[in-house]
Protein backbone atom coordinates (compact mmCIF):
# COMPACT_ATOMS: atom_id res chain seq x y z
CA UNK A 1 0.00 0.00 0.00
CA UNK A 2 1.50 3.30 -1.10
CA UNK A 3 2.03 6.30 1.17
CA UNK A 4 -0.83 8.05 -0.58
CA UNK A 5 -3.14 5.09 0.13
CA UNK A 6 -2.01 5.05 3.76
CA UNK A 7 -2.94 8.75 3.92
CA UNK A 8 -6.40 7.90 2.54
CA UNK A 9 -6.78 5.17 5.18
CA UNK A 10 -5.68 7.61 7.90
CA UNK A 11 -8.19 10.20 6.65
CA UNK A 12 -10.92 7.55 6.65
CA UNK A 13 -10.21 6.42 10.19
CA UNK A 14 -9.92 9.99 11.47
CA UNK A 15 -13.18 10.97 9.77
CA UNK A 16 -14.88 7.89 11.18
CA UNK A 17 -13.76 8.81 14.70
CA UNK A 18 -14.78 12.46 14.20
CA UNK A 19 -18.27 11.41 13.10
CA UNK A 20 -18.54 9.17 16.13
CA UNK A 21 -17.66 12.04 18.49
CA UNK A 22 -20.07 14.41 16.79
CA UNK A 23 -22.86 11.84 16.38
CA UNK A 24 -23.00 11.15 20.11
CA UNK A 25 -22.18 14.74 21.20
CA UNK A 26 -24.64 14.41 24.07
CA UNK A 27 -22.28 11.81 25.56
CA UNK A 28 -18.95 13.15 24.33
CA UNK A 29 -19.02 16.96 24.38
CA UNK A 30 -21.85 18.12 26.60
CA UNK A 31 -21.20 16.31 29.93
CA UNK A 32 -17.60 17.56 30.36
CA UNK A 33 -18.69 21.10 29.54
CA UNK A 34 -21.41 20.97 32.20
CA UNK A 35 -18.96 19.40 34.69
CA UNK A 36 -16.40 22.11 34.13
CA UNK A 37 -19.02 24.85 34.40
CA UNK A 38 -19.96 23.39 37.80
CA UNK A 39 -16.29 23.38 38.86
CA UNK A 40 -16.08 27.06 37.97
CA UNK A 41 -19.28 27.89 39.83
CA UNK A 42 -18.43 25.89 42.97
CA UNK A 43 -14.63 26.08 43.24
CA UNK A 44 -14.20 29.31 41.35
CA UNK A 45 -17.06 31.55 42.41
CA UNK A 46 -18.32 30.15 45.71
CA UNK A 47 -15.22 28.70 47.39
CA UNK A 48 -12.64 30.57 45.33
CA UNK A 49 -13.84 33.98 46.51
CA UNK A 50 -12.84 32.97 50.05
CA UNK A 51 -9.46 31.53 49.00
CA UNK A 52 -8.21 34.75 47.52
CA UNK A 53 -5.33 35.02 45.04
CA UNK A 54 -2.92 32.25 44.12
CA UNK A 55 0.50 32.92 42.55
CA UNK A 56 -0.75 36.46 41.95
CA UNK A 57 -3.90 35.44 40.07
CA UNK A 58 -7.58 35.40 40.87
CA UNK A 59 -8.43 31.80 41.95
CA UNK A 60 -10.84 31.31 39.02
CA UNK A 61 -8.07 32.35 36.64
CA UNK A 62 -5.59 30.12 38.42
CA UNK A 63 -7.67 26.93 38.17
CA UNK A 64 -8.89 27.54 34.58
CA UNK A 65 -5.81 26.02 32.81
CA UNK A 66 -5.90 22.96 35.08
CA UNK A 67 -9.60 22.42 34.49
CA UNK A 68 -9.12 22.72 30.73
CA UNK A 69 -6.28 20.18 30.90
CA UNK A 70 -8.41 17.90 33.03
CA UNK A 71 -11.14 17.96 30.37
CA UNK A 72 -8.65 17.33 27.57
CA UNK A 73 -6.95 14.44 29.40
CA UNK A 74 -10.09 12.56 30.42
CA UNK A 75 -11.86 13.03 27.10
CA UNK A 76 -8.94 12.20 24.81
CA UNK A 77 -8.24 9.08 26.89
CA UNK A 78 -11.88 8.08 27.23
CA UNK A 79 -12.61 8.51 23.54
CA UNK A 80 -9.91 6.17 22.32
CA UNK A 81 -10.27 3.52 25.01
CA UNK A 82 -14.03 3.24 24.46
CA UNK A 83 -13.84 3.43 20.66
CA UNK A 84 -11.05 0.85 20.36
CA UNK A 85 -12.32 -1.52 23.01
CA UNK A 86 -15.88 -1.54 21.66
CA UNK A 87 -14.49 -2.21 18.16
CA UNK A 88 -12.43 -5.06 19.61
CA UNK A 89 -15.21 -6.61 21.65
CA UNK A 90 -17.77 -6.28 18.82
CA UNK A 91 -15.14 -7.53 16.36
CA UNK A 92 -15.50 -4.73 13.82
CA UNK A 93 -11.86 -3.93 14.59
CA UNK A 94 -11.29 -6.77 12.11
CA UNK A 95 -12.28 -4.32 9.36
CA UNK A 96 -8.95 -2.61 9.98
CA UNK A 97 -6.92 -5.71 10.76
CA UNK A 98 -7.71 -7.45 7.46
CA UNK A 99 -7.03 -4.26 5.46
CA UNK A 100 -3.51 -3.39 4.31
CA UNK A 101 -3.38 -0.19 6.38
CA UNK A 102 -0.22 -0.16 8.49
CA UNK A 103 -0.12 -0.33 12.26
CA UNK A 104 1.29 3.20 12.30
CA UNK A 105 -1.80 4.37 10.39
CA UNK A 106 -4.12 2.59 12.84
CA UNK A 107 -2.35 4.22 15.79
CA UNK A 108 -2.31 7.66 14.14
CA UNK A 109 -6.00 7.41 13.22
CA UNK A 110 -7.06 6.61 16.77
CA UNK A 111 -4.73 9.27 18.13
CA UNK A 112 -6.30 11.85 15.84
CA UNK A 113 -9.76 10.67 16.89
CA UNK A 114 -8.90 11.14 20.57
CA UNK A 115 -7.31 14.50 19.84
CA UNK A 116 -10.43 15.66 18.02
CA UNK A 117 -12.57 14.99 21.04
CA UNK A 118 -9.96 16.36 23.46
CA UNK A 119 -9.59 19.54 21.43
CA UNK A 120 -13.35 20.03 20.92
CA UNK A 121 -14.04 19.56 24.63
CA UNK A 122 -10.99 21.66 25.57
CA UNK A 123 -12.15 24.53 23.36
CA UNK A 124 -15.68 24.30 24.75
CA UNK A 125 -14.34 24.36 28.32
CA UNK A 126 -12.08 27.30 27.45
CA UNK A 127 -15.16 29.22 26.27
CA UNK A 128 -16.89 28.34 29.54
CA UNK A 129 -13.82 29.52 31.48
CA UNK A 130 -13.79 32.81 29.55
CA UNK A 131 -17.37 33.32 30.66
CA UNK A 132 -16.18 33.26 34.28
CA UNK A 133 -12.75 34.89 34.05
CA UNK A 134 -10.42 36.55 31.52
CA UNK A 135 -7.42 34.48 30.38
CA UNK A 136 -4.33 36.38 29.16
CA UNK A 137 -2.80 33.57 26.94
CA UNK A 138 0.69 34.75 27.91
CA UNK A 139 2.56 32.31 25.63
CA UNK A 140 0.28 31.25 22.77
CA UNK A 141 2.74 28.76 21.20
CA UNK A 142 3.29 26.95 24.49
CA UNK A 143 -0.44 27.00 25.19
CA UNK A 144 -1.26 25.45 21.82
CA UNK A 145 1.60 22.94 21.77
CA UNK A 146 0.88 21.68 25.30
CA UNK A 147 -2.84 21.53 24.51
CA UNK A 148 -2.25 19.35 21.42
CA UNK A 149 0.52 17.22 22.93
CA UNK A 150 -1.58 16.52 26.01
CA UNK A 151 -4.50 15.39 23.82
CA UNK A 152 -2.15 13.17 21.79
CA UNK A 153 -0.42 11.65 24.84
CA UNK A 154 -3.66 10.64 26.52
CA UNK A 155 -5.19 9.41 23.27
CA UNK A 156 -2.26 7.02 23.01
CA UNK A 157 -2.65 6.09 26.67
CA UNK A 158 -6.30 5.29 25.96
CA UNK A 159 -5.29 3.20 22.97
CA UNK A 160 -2.89 1.12 25.06
CA UNK A 161 -5.67 0.61 27.60
CA UNK A 162 -8.05 -0.41 24.80
CA UNK A 163 -5.57 -2.89 23.35
CA UNK A 164 -4.71 -4.46 26.69
CA UNK A 165 -8.25 -4.49 28.16
CA UNK A 166 -9.93 -7.87 28.33
CA UNK A 167 -13.26 -6.69 29.71
CA UNK A 168 -15.20 -3.55 30.62
CA UNK A 169 -13.67 -3.45 34.11
CA UNK A 170 -10.23 -3.08 32.56
CA UNK A 171 -11.52 -0.09 30.62
CA UNK A 172 -12.68 1.81 33.71
CA UNK A 173 -9.93 0.88 36.19
CA UNK A 174 -7.18 3.17 34.84
CA UNK A 175 -9.35 6.30 34.41
CA UNK A 176 -10.96 5.87 37.84
CA UNK A 177 -8.08 4.66 39.97
CA UNK A 178 -5.01 6.10 38.26
CA UNK A 179 -5.86 9.01 36.01
CA UNK A 180 -8.40 10.80 38.20
CA UNK A 181 -6.24 10.82 41.38
CA UNK A 182 -3.17 11.93 39.44
CA UNK A 183 -5.17 14.78 37.87
CA UNK A 184 -6.56 15.97 41.22
CA UNK A 185 -3.12 15.75 42.81
CA UNK A 186 -1.46 17.30 39.76
CA UNK A 187 -1.82 20.94 40.77
CA UNK A 188 -5.14 21.65 39.06
CA UNK A 189 -6.56 23.41 42.11
CA UNK A 190 -3.42 24.53 43.94
CA UNK A 191 0.21 25.46 43.62
CA UNK A 192 2.49 22.76 45.03
CA UNK A 193 4.45 25.57 46.72
CA UNK A 194 1.66 25.49 49.33
CA UNK A 195 2.56 21.89 50.23
CA UNK A 196 5.19 20.73 52.77
CA UNK A 197 8.58 19.90 51.25
CA UNK A 198 8.06 16.12 51.25
CA UNK A 199 4.64 16.42 49.58
CA UNK A 200 6.19 18.74 47.00
CA UNK A 201 8.85 16.12 46.20
CA UNK A 202 6.20 13.42 45.87
CA UNK A 203 4.06 15.70 43.67
CA UNK A 204 7.00 16.14 41.31
CA UNK A 205 6.78 12.42 40.52
CA UNK A 206 3.30 13.01 39.10
CA UNK A 207 3.61 13.51 35.31
CA UNK A 208 0.31 15.37 35.12
CA UNK A 209 1.77 18.14 37.33
CA UNK A 210 4.08 19.00 34.43
CA UNK A 211 1.28 19.09 31.86
CA UNK A 212 -0.96 21.27 34.01
CA UNK A 213 1.85 23.66 34.91
CA UNK A 214 3.15 23.88 31.36
CA UNK A 215 -0.34 24.77 30.18
CA UNK A 216 -0.76 27.23 33.05
CA UNK A 217 2.54 28.80 32.03
CA UNK A 218 1.24 29.16 28.47
CA UNK A 219 -1.99 30.77 29.63
CA UNK A 220 -0.95 32.76 32.69
CA UNK A 221 2.86 32.85 32.60
CA UNK A 222 3.35 31.07 35.98
CA UNK A 223 4.47 27.52 36.70
CA UNK A 224 5.67 25.29 39.55
CA UNK A 225 7.98 23.34 37.20
CA UNK A 226 10.64 24.20 34.59
CA UNK A 227 8.86 24.57 31.24
CA UNK A 228 11.71 23.19 29.14
CA UNK A 229 11.76 20.01 31.18
CA UNK A 230 7.97 19.67 31.02
CA UNK A 231 7.99 20.15 27.25
CA UNK A 232 10.78 17.62 26.73
CA UNK A 233 9.00 15.14 28.99
CA UNK A 234 5.83 15.48 26.93
CA UNK A 235 7.71 14.88 23.69
CA UNK A 236 9.46 11.85 25.15
CA UNK A 237 6.15 10.47 26.49
CA UNK A 238 4.57 10.95 23.10
CA UNK A 239 7.37 9.02 21.39
CA UNK A 240 7.40 6.19 23.95
CA UNK A 241 3.61 5.78 23.97
CA UNK A 242 3.39 5.88 20.17
CA UNK A 243 6.10 3.23 19.83
CA UNK A 244 4.38 1.09 22.48
CA UNK A 245 1.06 1.23 20.61
CA UNK A 246 2.68 0.26 17.30
CA UNK A 247 4.60 -2.56 18.97
CA UNK A 248 1.46 -3.94 20.65
CA UNK A 249 -0.41 -3.92 17.34
CA UNK A 250 2.52 -5.51 15.53
CA UNK A 251 2.59 -8.30 18.06
CA UNK A 252 -1.17 -8.55 17.85
CA UNK A 253 -1.32 -8.41 21.64
CA UNK A 254 -4.86 -9.44 22.69
CA UNK A 255 -6.01 -8.66 19.16
CA UNK A 256 -4.75 -11.42 16.92
CA UNK A 257 -4.87 -14.96 18.25
Amino acid sequence: MSLRQQAVALGTLSRKEYHRVVRIWGQTILPPVINMALYFVIFGNLIGSRIGRMDGFDYRQYIAPGLIMMAVITNAYGNVVSSFFSAKINRHLEEMLVAPMSNVTIVLGHMVGGMIRGVLVGLAVTLVALFFTPLPFAHPFITLSVFLMCAAIFSLGGLINGIVAKNFDDVSIIPSFVLQPLIYLGGVFYSISLLPELAQQVSRLNPILYLVNAFRFGMLGVSDVPIGFAWAMMLASLAVLFATCVLLLQRGYRIRE
Partner: peptide, 11 residues
Amino acid sequence: VNQAGFYGLPP
Protein backbone atom coordinates in the same frame (compact mmCIF):
# COMPACT_ATOMS: atom_id res chain seq x y z
CA VAL B 1 -17.26 3.45 2.30
CA ASN B 2 -15.01 3.28 5.36
CA GLN B 3 -13.90 -0.23 4.47
CA ALA B 4 -12.88 0.98 1.01
CA GLY B 5 -10.96 3.81 2.67
CA PHE B 6 -9.06 1.33 4.83
CA TYR B 7 -7.87 -0.24 1.57
CA GLY B 8 -6.74 3.15 0.29
CA LEU B 9 -9.60 3.95 -2.10
CA PRO B 10 -10.14 7.72 -2.28
CA PRO B 11 -13.57 8.91 -1.02
